[in-house]
Amino acid sequence: MLQRYRFEIGCVVALLACFLITQVELNRFYYFAGFAILQYVLISTAWNILGGYGGYINFGTAGFLGLGTYVAIAMIQWYGAGIIEQIIVAGALAGLLGLGIGYITLRLKGVYFAIATLAIAIVLETFVNNWDYVGGAAGVSILPPRTPELLGITIVDRKGGGIFYNNKEWLFFLMGALAIASVWIARTIEFGKLGRGLNAIKDNEEAAECMGVPTLKLKLIATVISGALMGVAGAVFPSYLTFVDPPTAFNLEFAVNSLAMPMIGGTFTWIGPVVGSILLGTVQQVAIVTISSEINLLIIGLLLVIFVTIAPHGIVGWFMKKNK
């Protein structure tokens, strides 16, 4: 019984751990670092659903993420939408973006999808730069509600009347919950028909199609889920950062990390992106503080190239003897 629900129990324990961390007084840096790492768990897990299982590389993570961020900003500007609404709408629109790009390019060779995604971030950034309602090129400041409520329950209250004492703690927990949910989704896909079909596509698309796998449909489903989760990750950003400008929202670092973390962790199973993002995310948080952010980026780039060339099955592959 316990064996069978090991993963589900693990999820609940992880969620409880996220909650407990918010209830102890920690140095703010730890919340900041933890939030970044959890966000990377979400983003790289999302990337891996299409990239790892299906073998279709998405270079546009920053675009999907930035879209989610700016959808949330627009909703706050429009009618002061709550965070849950922002997340749902941002996810839906990012999924729709995936559907659009995918519908045009996924019927062609895999490189065309990759190339089309390369330009997404730049184009969306162009639109945002020209759209003053969400701050344009200068960026925008967001004032989070002082005492947000959810289903009538006060979530945050500095005076102690809510579940969390401040907004950062609440958003840390929320990001934890989203990250865990994304891992659960990825694992469900991996062990289901969709995951097996995507795997067949990755191994040999023509053979998969001839064995009855509806390749285009599965690729589109994966692109939509993957894109939607990236949009969700972006939606939490404005509330968390309280100031967003286009270079932050559309940062190329997201694209690199979302690709490098699964590749380094191992793309063939859900554990890979989790291991990759926790490991690399931690190294990055330490490196940014102790060395410099440039060196930190250089390390990611080098690790990506090294793993892609020498150990295509990543760290998890070593333990499962996949790297020959």
Binding site: N199, A200, K202, D203, N204, E206, A207, A208, C210
Partner: peptide, 12 residues
Amino acid sequence: RTFQIPRPFHSM
């Protein structure tokens, strides 16, 4: 159909 050069799903 089968393929002239076998195309197994090699990760499975």
